[in-house]
Structure formats: C-alpha cells, structure tokens
Design a protein around this nucleic acid. Structure first.
Lengths: 222, 222
DNA sequence: GTCTATATCCTGATAGAC
DNA sequence: GTCTATCAGGATATAGAC
C-alpha cells in the first residue's frame, strides 16, 4: 500500500525492488537478501509480508497484470462501442498497446515490468504459470471473437496459430531493449519512440494475420 | 567426444545432461550436482573438463550453434546458386528452418536444445551474450543483403525492425511447446508436424515483412 | 511490524589420494 | 581421469526479543 504522502510502505518497496531485480537477473538468480537490501528493509520482512519467495513472485505479477488486462478490455470495449466492425489494427493495438506503453511510465518502474513481462511470457516460471493462464483466459475470451470477426476468411485454428506468432513478436519487443539497437548499430531503438514501435509492431502482425491461407494446410478445406 | 561405439564420453554426457536441465529449469536454477547426477558422472568432472559452470554453459551452445548457423548459410548459398533472385519465403525458410527442424532430431536431444535456444534468444544470459552476438554477426552479414534484395521497396532500417519481430515469433515458437496447445484446447500443436509449423511461421513473417511502409514512419521519405 | 540471530541446507569450487 | 572429502559462502526460512 502506498501512503497518501507518496512514500511507499515496506510492502511496495519490496515489490518494487523485486520487480527490478527479477527483470535484470531472473527469478532464481535474485536472492531475498538482494531484494531487501535494494528496498532498504529488513531481510525478515519478505517472509512476514509475503510468506515465501514464490508468493512474492506471484504478488509482483498480481499487482500489475490485472490493471493491464482491464485496460486491454476497456480499449476493446471502446472500440466495439464506436464501431461494430472495428479494424484488425484497432484490435491489435488494444492488445499490444497497454503492455508496450508501460515503457513510458518511468516513474513507477513501467519499463522494468515491461521487460520482466516480456521475458516471462516466453519463459514461464512454474510459480506464475497459473496466474498467466487464468488472466489470459479472460483476455482470450474477449479478443478471440473480435479477431475472428475481423478475419472472416481465416479458419479459427489459424487465428490461434497466428496470434501465437504475434505474441512472440510482442514479447521479444518488450524484453529486448538493447539487442535490436546493438545489431542495427544504433539505427533502431524500440524504446526511443514507443508509439512508433507500437505502430510498426501492429502493422507487422496485422499483415501476418492477413497472410493468405496456405492451400496445403492440414485440416483446412480449400 | 562420442566414441565410435556410440557411447558418449564423460564430456558429452555432461553436455547432454546440462542441455536438458538448462532447458527445463534455466541456468541458475540448475546446479552442477543435478547435472552430474543426471549424467551419471562425478561432481568434480565438470570443473575438470570445463573449468567452471559459466564455461560449461558456453560449451553447451558452442557445440550446437556453429553447425546450426552453417546449415543456414549453406541453405542460403544453395538458394542463391540456383536462382539469383530467391524468394522471400525461401530466404526465411533458410533462416527459421534449421532451428525448428531440431525438433525432429529426438535421438540427439534436438527438441531440448530447440527449447533452450528459444528461451535464450529472448532472455540472453550474460555468460553467452558474446557467443550470440559473434555467431549472429556472421548470419546477419549473409541474410541482411539477401533480405534487402528480396524487399527492394523496404528501407534498410525497416528490415531490421521487422526481422526483430520475426525473430520473436520464431523464438516463441521454439520455446513454447505446450502453451499454444493448452490455450487452443489441443487444436494447435507446433511439435506435431514441424514442417507445417515452419510453413505457417514463414508465411506469417513473410507477410509481416511485406507489410506496407506506414507513411508517418520517422526517417522515411515518401 | 521490525529487528537480530540463527537453523538448515545447498551452492560452486578445489585439494589431494588413487 | 576419476574419486572422496571438504571449504567457504550464500540460500530460504524461522524463532523470539522489542
């Protein structure tokens, strides 16, 4: 709980420090000692407030994931409210925009959590696997029908396949803030203008989702 | 070194066990004790043969990455030898085919290394960062010009951006062998027919690479 | 709620016999 | 090359004073 003065309490200080260190070093490589030192609190405070390291990991995600997914659904609601046939690009922007815009929230550690989320999407830790599946079920229930309506010629199974590829592109963009810049000799920087990055990503995955269905795809009658 | 009898020596037994456990648990969560127990060798053998855990991690990648990248380049060579303007799909298949076809090599732990490679692409460990950058430089030097020739209307910077997205799709497909199946209620299984998976992935990223260049992209004159 | 002190166990690495 | 035994340190977690 953050107090009215803006000074984070012990619990949030631990969550902030854990989020940062998990993003930088990974879950197992980050010790409770490192977290409490970074947070400026006592070592025993973690077990007092969270019970165990695994439950701390869960708390780090719970704190951020629910608001993030609610924002996605609000954006999709707004989109469908103003146009009963929203564009594919609009739907995809509602999906990838909220996590990528975390990058702008520098005051509250947004870029850090964005990186953590990106790396955790491709490397699910056992401790948070259930959180992801549960939270994602809600998202899939809303976005899958919207995508199927926007892509009427695409068989439903094919939507799953291509969203899987799209999530990979999104996750890679979220966690890799340095390699793209390195390999492009500084010419491409995903963090420099996050809205431009979102536009590029949306146009890439929208085109991928609209790709012609291969005639030899098993299970698809042509 | 594997002997002529087909019985792996101590060194390869350690590498095989490390590869498996790294893919399942991650680098830091895997102890040398777990590796030597799995390999059926003595604990001290790791430090005798490799010097340290970090050098063992490097050796796990060195053993597989060089042949993999040589296969990519051979495929591209063959492609350019038979047609001076190879198709975008052909180039992309030469890039994503070799790592994904590791999945078929069940006898020699291919699926395990595929998963490890996928997760390491998005979450680079400090110890192997240099290996990836060095190995990838060779690949980029060959594939970047080929892609630019296949996409003449695309500004070179945009090729970097879109290949970044494409690599994300590929990496996610490589390391996630269960979530797609889970979320699609068993209807999509990337490992069931790896050639079909490659075709789907290639068609997705080819369409993404061919997406129209947004007119408001900074740095692009229209 | 916060602290000190500590229990218990596991880590990577090495010394030295064989 | 392979083994046993061990070192020195770090890990999570907890007991109990304040």
């Amino acid at each position: 709980m953050t107090t009215a003065t803006g000074t984070p309490g012990t619990k949030d200080r631990i969550l902030d420090a854990a989020e940062k260190l998990f993003a930088d070093e990974g879950f197992t490589a980050t010790s409770l000692r490192a977290i409490t030192t970074e947070a400026g609190v006592n070592l025993a405070a973690v077990n007092y407030h969270f019970g165990s390291k695994d439950r701390l990991i869960e708390a780090v995600f719970e704190r951020r994931l629910a608001p993030l997914n609610h924002e996605r659904i609000s954006l999709l609601d707004a989109l469908e409210g103003s146009d009963e046939n929203p564009s594919l690009e609009g739907i995809l922007e509602a999906f990838v925009g909220p996590p990528l815009r975390l990058h702008r929230d520098t005051d509250r550690g947004g870029p850090t959590f964005m990186r953590l989320l990106g790396r955790t999407l491709t490397e699910p830790s056992q401790a948070i696997h259930e959180i992801f599946v549960r939270q994602f079920a809600e998202i899939a229930a809303r976005f899958t029908p919207a995508l199927e309506r926007a892509l009427p010629v695409l068989p439903p199974d094919e939507v799953f396949w291509r969203m899987h590829f799209a999530i990979g592109s999104m996750a890679h963009t979220m966690c890799d803030t340095f390699r793209l810049k390195l390999l492009s000799a500084g010419r491409c920087d995903a963090g420099e203008d996050i809205d431009a990055t979102i536009r590029r990503l949306v146009s890439f995955i929208a085109a991928g989702l609209r790709a012609p269905v291969p005639v030899d795809t098993p299970g698809v009658e042509t």
